[in-house]
Structures are given as structure tokens and as C-alpha cells.
Design a protein around this nucleic acid. Structure first.
Lengths: 174, 174, 174, 174
DNA sequence: AATGAATGAGTATTCATTCAT
DNA sequence: CATGAATGAATACTCATTCAT
């Protein structure tokens, strides 16, 4: 290929490509929303369109890859002795703010069983840390904060998340 | 007009067209999201593409028309003697469920001053009904419920909204 | 009509409307080219779309109206004793610069017999003022200047026309 | 691909596609003017819409490609020993007649620096062949002939160009 | 396995033209 | 006879997906 085409780095690049695509998806979807063109993700990752489709045949597969990373981090934290519910919520909030666009995925049709599996893992680790019955409330609260944070400009996300958690903790009536 | 073209109903149809377009927008955006094709809105309304653009030059103008109706209904309710904050929140929730897709608009760029005006009217009427300082908490809570409801399948929206309000009212710690 | 619709000024407005449309066409086509939307002409004239179509069923009819005015002015000048060919060319040049967009019409299909008639009148009055056989050269020269002026920014049109006439008068080889 | 979709000829078709698009643009714009639909150019070239946009993101890029070819041919001729100004003008005239529609581009807004570069190259090669100071006159004359030829039916273009050059050479006064 | 060009369906938008009032 | 809303065909442009190399 004597032309301007990027060199074919061969099979060895597969792992690096996959990681670059996930990182690019976090960035691009964070900036332009979950509906951003996939070509922009491939370009940001420095990877061909075809490679994106090989690794992630559907748009949702990119989101699932991010979720998998996030849940693994949560599970690692939960496994550490002395971790409180608040510690877990703090990490969840950090993840929400970092990968806000993927929250949109949750509502996208059709409902994906792999998504349900992720939610199940989160529920399980919350149940392990919260008093009986509290896990569903926490899941609902996380959903509310996530949804809210997703529709706020990047600069306001941290403050909005903090205000939302404060309100949720004290309730509407003092 | 022996061909397939819809009869030109003349200028008298302007009002009816406008109302049909708003109603169609609520339906279509409710089903397919705020990014749904405008051609689908025009078709559902039984109106030509050009008429849609005449009445609503930008997509956001459709949302503003819905918001204007909603806020007017809220103001009418607030003006009725004996109306409580809970009455207002109940109506807000009904509106959210009925016009869920328009919630997405609030986060769309660029920020629209007309949108800020609508928010201002809501804040004002809440401030008139809530104890001092409570209006901002209520606005935040409405935002959370709205964002959450918007990413839930239509059939679950009522139950989700109810659960969210219950959680917000009692707070996360019993 | 209690709404925002302009008052129907009635049949008496016909003449004024026609003149306003021609003037608006000169302006709008001058600014945006002969392909400018007819709705812009009607708006500029302060006249309904329907009235434009009544007076000028086709786009070319607007051009013909301008040409008719221009040729009448030329004929009036030619009829004045002592008028030279240069006087006529000076007026033609003024007209070209003022109504530059209409030059495009000449090349628009299909060829219109009324356009040929206008050209014939111009040839006749030039023949009356120029030495035998010179009228066709003059017509060709006018066509060249017109075509050139039409593709130059408004501010440069006068200077361009002057340079073109100077070149035509002296020829390429001194 | 059993459906109607054209076979994907792969990246190797890029060069052929580009050439086909330029050739199709010359034809289509020649027949229907510079405002002709780009979809017609793509269809004539036997190429998808997307490929047209990939190669020529803007309409003017098609014109620049034609100009680049034309100027290169002129420069090649100018470099040949014994080439006269008349030889160059003859080639310019041939090019004008073949790619007449692109003349419109020159007046299109916004002014494009790449267009100015093309003009500069033409001026340079004329200056090399013409007596001192003559290049600007020649450029003006070419502009007049080009503008005139562009507004004449295809069948008349050669004769019109010849008549225009003859008039320019001898000047208006015998 | 990677690359990126090719493809065309899908949408937004404009504007000529018609016609009820 | 005037008005301007209604209509939809035509066009520009984007982007998901395929596939030759």
C-alpha cells in the first residue's frame, strides 16, 4: 500500500484495537451522545471501520464492554473488607460521570439479557453491603442520578450528582 | 385533484394543523424518541412537510409548544384555591408520562432562552405553593423523576414514577 | 381577518403590486441571483404569493418586464436628436449593472420568442445609430460585457464594465 | 448481492471512481448547469452518493478538479517550444467549450483561495507568452468569452466563441 | 485480522405551485 | 382580485453496513 492508507498492523493489534475502541467510545459518546456516528469512534480510536464491527458488531456491545469494566471495579471494591455502601455509591457516581452517555443504552430497545445480567451483578453487590431490602431502593436511586446526570452539561455533572444524592438521602420533607 | 395529493384545505386549516402537529409530536416522539423523523410527525398529523416547517421551523419549537400547554395547565391548577404541592406534583407527573420524550429537549444544545423561561414559570408556581426554599428541591426532584421515566418502557412509566416519588419523599435512610 | 394577515387591499392595488414586484425582483435577483426563491420576491414586494403568480405566471415574465422597461428607456434616448452610439452604450451599461441578474435569463431554456423580440428592438435602435453592419458587433459586445458583469461582485461591476469596453474598443493588439 | 445494489468494487475502484465523477460532472453540469443535482452526477458516473461526497466534499471541489486538469494541459502546451499566445488561446477556448458550466463557479461565493491559485497559474503562463502587460488583457478577454459562451446553447458555442475572439482582436472600430 | 472505500437508504430542508378564504 | 397557508416533489447530506484488498 504505497498510498496514504494506515499500515495494516496485523493480528497482533487486535487487543490494542479493542481497548482503543472502548476508550474512544467513552470519549466520543461522552461528547456527542450515544447516537454519535460509529465512524467517529473508529476514527478517534485510530482503527478501521471494519475492525470496529469485528470487535463490536452492535453499538450496544460497546456499552456492554464499558459496563463490564465498571462492574468489575465495583465488585473488587465490594470484596475489600470494610467497604461501606457509601463507598460503593461514590464509585458508582464516579463511573456515571465518566461514562455518562452509556446510561442512554439502558433504555434502548430491544431489551438485552446481557444488560439485565449486569444489573443483577450490581444488585447482588449492593445487597451484600446494604441492610435487607435496601438494594432495590439503591438501584432505583442510582437510576435516577444516572438519568439526571446524563442530561446535564459535562461541567455541571459532579455538582448535580452531589445535589441529587443529598436530596435522596434526606428526603423531600425535613 | 384526481391524483394522490391531499386536498388543500386552505388557510382555515392552519389552527387545526397546528394542533394536529403538536398531538402527533407527542405521540411519535413518545414512541420513537425525540430524534424521530419529522416526516413521521407530519404524516401522523395528516399534514404536509411544508406545513410542519411553517408552524415549527425547528424541532425544538414542537417541544416548546407542548411545554407551553403543560405549564399553562399547571398555572391554572396552582391558581385554584386549596391546591397543594402534591396536587401540582401529581399533574407534573401525569404530564411527564404523557410527553416523556420532550424531557430530552431540556439537555439539547444550544441552550434555548425560551426553555429557561418555561423553567422559570414552573419554579415560580412551585415557590408559591411550597415552604420557603423548597422550590429548588422540588425542581431537582422533578428533573430526576422526569429523566428516569424517560428511559423506561411506556408500560412501566406510571409505576416507576410512583416508586421514585415514594423514595424521594421518605429519603434513603428510614 | 382579525389575525396577522395583511389587509386585502383589493383590486385597486393591482398596478402598485405589479410595480412593487418588478422592483423587488430587481433587488432580490440582484442580490441572490436569478435562481432566488420567488417567495423572497413576493415578500420583498409586500405582496402575496398568489398575486405574484397572477401578474407573472412564470419566472421569465419578471425578466421580460424589466427588459421592457429598459428597452423603452433606450428607445426614448435613441429618439432624442444628437444621441450617439456611445450614449446608448452608456445607458445599456447602466442598465446591465442595475439589473445584472436578468442577463442569466437570456440563456435559460426554452428560448422565448418575447426575448427575441426584445433583442430585435435593441438591434433596430443600434442600427439606427451605428454605421451599417455595426449593430451585430455591438450586440455581441453588449452580450460579452453583460455576461462578464453578471459574474463579478456588485462592488466591482462598474470598473469591470469600463475595462471590458475599453478592451473592446481598442482590440487586443495595439 | 441478489438485490439491486451495485456490487462493491472495493478500494481499488477509488481512482476509477474519481475519474468517472469528474467526467460525469463535466457532462451533467454542461447539460444542466452548475446547479445540477449532485445525485445526477453520481448516477451518471455509476457511483454511489457517498463516494461522490468522499472524493468531493463540496460542489466546488468538482470544479477545481476540472480546472486543475485544464491548467495542467495549458502548462504542458506552454512549455513546448514554439507555442504562441494564439495556440494557448485556442486551447483555452476548447476547454471553455468543453467545460462551460464550470465558468459559473468563478463567481460563486465565498471566494475560494484555490480558485485564485488556478487563475494565478493561468496568468503566469500567459505572461510568459505575451508581450509585457498583455496578460491582464488576455485574462479579461478570456473571462468575457467564457462568460458569453456559458450562456449560449451548446450547438452555438464554437461559433460564438470564434465571433467573440474575432471582435476582440480587431476592436469595435474598424 | 486490519483497513478504509463503496454503497444507498433515510432524513432534513427548501421552494414552486395550488387554492380556500 | 389579494392573501398566505397547504402541499409534496426534489435535493443535499449523513452514516450504518459491506467487502475487496
Amino acid at each position: 500500500m504505497p498510498d496514504g492508507r494506515r499500515a495494516n498492523r496485523g493480528p497482533g493489534a487486535a487487543g490494542a484495537n479493542r481497548r482503543a475502541l472502548v476508550a474512544a467510545a467513552v470519549e466520543v459518546f461522552g461528547e456527542r451522545g450515544y447516537a454519535a456516528p460509529l465512524s467517529a469512534v473508529a476514527r478517534r480510536a485510530g482503527v478501521g471501520q471494519g475492525s470496529l464491527y469485528r470487535h463490536f458488531p452492535e453499538r450496544v456491545d460497546l456499552a456492554l464492554a464499558v459496563f463490564a469494566d465498571n462492574v468489575a471495579a465495583l465488585e473488587a471494591l465490594a470484596a475489600r473488607p470494610g467497604t461501606t455502601v457509601d463507598d460503593l455509591l461514590a464509585l458508582v457516581t464516579d463511573q456515571l460521570i465518566a461514562s455518562v452517555a452509556f446510561v442512554e443504552v439502558v433504555s434502548s430497545a430491544p431489551p438485552d439479557p446481557r444488560l439485565a445480567a449486569v444489573t443483577g451483578r450490581v444488585r447482588a453487590l449492593l445487597a451484600g453491603a446494604a441492610p435487607a431490602g435496601g438494594a432495590d431502593d439503591l438501584l432505583l436511586a442510582i437510576g435516577m442520578v444516572a438519568a439526571l446526570v446524563a442530561r446535564v452539561p459535562p461541567a455541571d455533572r459532579r455538582a448535580t450528582a452531589d445535589a441529587a444524592w443529598a436530596l435522596l438521602r434526606r428526603g423531600l420533607r425535613p
